[in-house]
C-alpha cells in the first residue's frame, strides 16, 4: 500500500490493526511521511474550525436576536414600570393636593344664621359677644366664647359655630370633633353641618369619609348645598 493511501485511511479512521502498525512505524522512521501527516492534520483542523466558526456565527447571531429581544422586553418593562411608578406618585400627589384644593374652592365661612347682630343689641350679652367676634373674624375668641356658652346653655347650634371657628383657625381635627358632637343634635343646622363636616374631612385628607357624607347630602335636593355636594362629589 502506498503511503498516500495509508494516510487517507488514517484520516478516514479506517486503518486496520495491521495498517496501524505500519502507519505508526512510518511516523517514527520516515520524517517526510510524518511531515505530510502533520500537514494534513492541520488542513483538517483548519477546515473543521472554519466550518464550525461559520455555523457558530450563525447561532451567535440567532442568540443575539433572542437576547436583544429579551433586553428590549426588559427595557420596555423597566420603562413601563418607571412610567407607572411616576404616574402613581404623581396621581398620589394630585390626590393629596386635590382634597385641600377642593376644600379651598368649596369652603366659605358659614354665615351667622343663628343670632343676628343688630346695632342696638346689648353687647354685654356673651352670646352677642361671641357672634360679634365670629363675624369680625376673631375666631379664637369666638371659639372660646362658643365653648363656654355651649356648656352653660346647651345650645347645640353653638357647637356648629365652634367647629367653623376651628376650621378657620386651621385645626381641622377639633373642627371634626365639634361637628361630630353636633351630629347628636338634630337642630336646624344639621344639614349645613353635614356640608362643613364633609369639607373638614376633605381638608383632613379623609376623602372616603368626605365622600360618604357628600353622598348623604346628594340623596335629597332639599339638603344644604345639594348641588355643590353633587358637583364636589364628581371631582373626588
Amino acid at each position: 500500500m502506498d503511503s498516500e493511501r495509508l494516510i487517507a485511511k488514517y484520516f478516514l479512521n479506517q486503518l486496520s490493526a495491521e495498517e496501524k502498525v505500519m502507519f505508526d512505524n512510518l511516523i517514527q522512521t520516515n520524517s517526510e511521511f510524518k511531515e505530510q501527516v502533520e500537514f494534513e492534520e492541520k488542513v483538517k483542523k483548519s477546515i473543521f474550525q472554519q466550518e464550525h466558526t461559520h455555523l457558530k456565527q450563525q447561532l451567535q447571531h440567532v442568540e443575539k436576536t433572542i437576547s436583544s429581544k429579551h433586553k428590549r422586553n426588559t427595557w420596555y418593562l423597566v420603562a413601563a414600570s418607571i412610567v407607572i411608578l411616576l404616574s402613581v406618585s404623581i396621581l398620589r400627589n394630585f390626590n393629596s393636593a386635590t382634597p385641600k384644593k377642593l376644600f379651598d374652592t368649596y369652603y366659605t365661612v358659614a354665615s351667622n344664621t343663628s343670632h343676628p347682630i343688630v346695632r342696638d343689641t346689648n353687647v354685654s350679652d356673651t352670646l352677642t359677644k361671641a357672634f360679634i367676634a365670629y363675624e369680625s373674624k376673631q375666631y379664637a375668641q369666638a371659639q372660646a366664647l362658643f365653648s363656654t356658652l355651649y356648656h352653660t346653655t346647651n345650645n347645640s347650634e353653638l357647637l356648629f359655630y365652634e367647629g367653623i371657628c376651628y376650621l378657620e383657625m386651621g385645626n381641622t381635627t377639633l373642627a371634626i370633633e365639634a361637628f361630630i358632637k353636633h351630629k347628636n343634635f338634630n337642630d336646624k343646622l344639621a344639614s349645613k353641618r353635614n356640608w362643613y363636616l364633609a369639607l373638614a374631612y376633605l381638608k383632613n385628607n379623609n376623602v372616603s369619609k368626605a365622600k360618604n357624607i357628600l353622598k348623604e347630602i346628594t340623596t335629597s335636593s332639599t339638603n344644604y348645598n345639594y348641588t355643590k355636594a353633587k358637583d364636589l362629589l364628581s371631582k373626588l
Binding site: 492534520e41 492541520k42 488542513v43 483538517k44 483542523k45 483548519s46 477546515i47 473543521f48 474550525q49 472554519q50 464550525h52
Partner: peptide, 21 residues
Amino acid sequence: NEIDNQRVYEQEELELFKKCF
C-alpha cells in the same frame, strides 16, 4: 477535539491555513 482551539497547534498557523484554503 477538532473544534477545540486550545490544542496542539498554534492558532496563528491554523489561521494561515484557513486563509490559504
